[in-house]
Design a protein around this nucleic acid. Structure first.
Lengths: 236, 236
DNA sequence: TGTACATCAGTGAACGCGCGTTCACTGATGTAC
DNA sequence: TGTACATCAGTGAACGCGCGTTCACTGATGTAC
């Protein structure tokens, strides 16, 4: 046994006391550093200062640890989005904007969580608990879209909230994974990812006929640009 | 040596004849199957029916093989986008739409290329040849955005083409990586990824004041919805 | 056309490494009485 | 309060495995003359 290990043991005794938590933290650090694919069970144990067999007392295998991280990630994500949405205060559009910002902030500040949730390849839909957590997070975006859809200008066709939610999600995810982190595909941007996404969402909302000048729920500024005809009420 | 291996050798002789190509194909298959992270050098050799040392005659290491794949991917991607754009025929908006569809089609039909290019974690910007190929592909989207920006309705502020290109890219990437493949984060969609992206892009373009009714370059149907004031000409 | 020779593109055996996993074990902790 | 005992949460050694990589080698191919 190495000196370091003896040292560590001397400090904390035979039992770790909080190993499960320590392993989760270690894994988060490793994923942030080397990506979800690069993280190993043995490494997490080493980082927590325990033998490679110890983690098996807390997780069936590597995948269960990864799922736990994703689970916790979805929960924190949901909490963050809920807070950002703040039930649509002070006005729907600016609260909606805030949700977009929160999304990016999460991807940027918690890259390990984000990786585990969306890029680790764990089958979310095979794990009911995980799936439920994921659904709850998405539900915030959906609820916001719902509220937005409800305030569609009278002359405009009401866009399906589900579609809006998926659109917003894909914009946020696209910006986050292309530009939002120290990623490989990074490229010089003329503006911050946050501004890029904000502009994108505003243009999109305007395309739906929503007022985007940030005064609380004003009248629409102009008539609908084109009479509806295609699917989703989008002119073809 | 196993029977299979002897058999294979008997068929093709001592020299493979086309090993480099065979390795690239093998790697593509493996990446499509197990993801960019799961593919190994040894596996590719095995799949090509050669000894594990053979690949070293053609690639310095695993990373060089991965880069070669990304390189080729960017080239095919560029060709596909060029063809889809078709220099803006028959009209800018519908050609633009076609580019979006082509993007998704590529992600769907060539998941291995797409992974290697955007999700494998290879440092694109550290390899000039690769970076150049990537730039050429993005240049197609940018050129299309440029053309679109140039036909902004007279009353509207002209949106920066670069920003438009980045927006479109993030939408396409977002939809592709969330819904476009047999991915982990897949979830039941009320429509196809293609339709989802098409609607998203159309709404976005309408938000910029572009006519989106697909008749070749018509007059704008209505006045700009809101007077410009914020950055990028987007009302704040 | 033949032959000698250089070069190329493979082989297969070997290596060190780190990983995941299992095992019998042991020290610490909690609990019943 | 003390003690016996069950349970829990660790240890450390060992295993088999596949990977990346190197090495001296060898069979096939191309070329100069």
């Amino acid at each position: 046994m190495s000196w370091r290990k003896e040292q560590r043991r001397a400090e904390r005794g035979y039992h770790h006391g909080n190993l499960k938590e320590a392993l989760l933290q270690a894994a988060l650090g490793l994923i942030a550093e080397k990506g979800a694919a690069g993280f190993t069970f043995a490494d997490a144990a080493r980082m927590a200062g325990v033998s490679p067999a110890a983690p098996y007392r807390h997780f069936r295998d590597r995948d269960e640890l990864l799922s736990s991280i994703a689970q916790r990630g979805f929960e924190q994500f949901e909490a963050l989005l809920t807070q950002a949405w703040d039930d649509g205060r002070p006005d729907t559009v600016s609260a909606f904007e805030r949700v977009g910002k929160a999304y990016l902030a999460f991807a940027r500040n918690e890259p390990a969580f984000y990786s585990a949730m969306f890029e680790s390849g764990i089958p979310v839909d095979a794990n009911p608990t995980l799936m439920a957590a994921s659904e709850r997070a998405f539900a915030i975006i959906r609820a916001a879209a719902e509220r937005l859809a409800a305030m569609a200008p009278p002359g405009m066709p009401r866009p399906p909230a589900m579609m809006m939610a998926l659109h917003i999600w894909s914009m946020a995810h696209g910006v986050a994974s292309l530009f939002g982190r120290g990623d490989a595909a990074r490229r010089k941007l003329p503006m911050s990812p946050e501004d890029l996404l904000e502009a994108e969402v505003l243009i999109y909302l305007r395309g739906l006929g929503f007022p985007t000048d940030r005064r609380p729920e004003p009248k629409p500024a102009g008539p609908p640009p084109v009479p509806p005809s295609g699917p989703w009420g989008i002119p073809k």
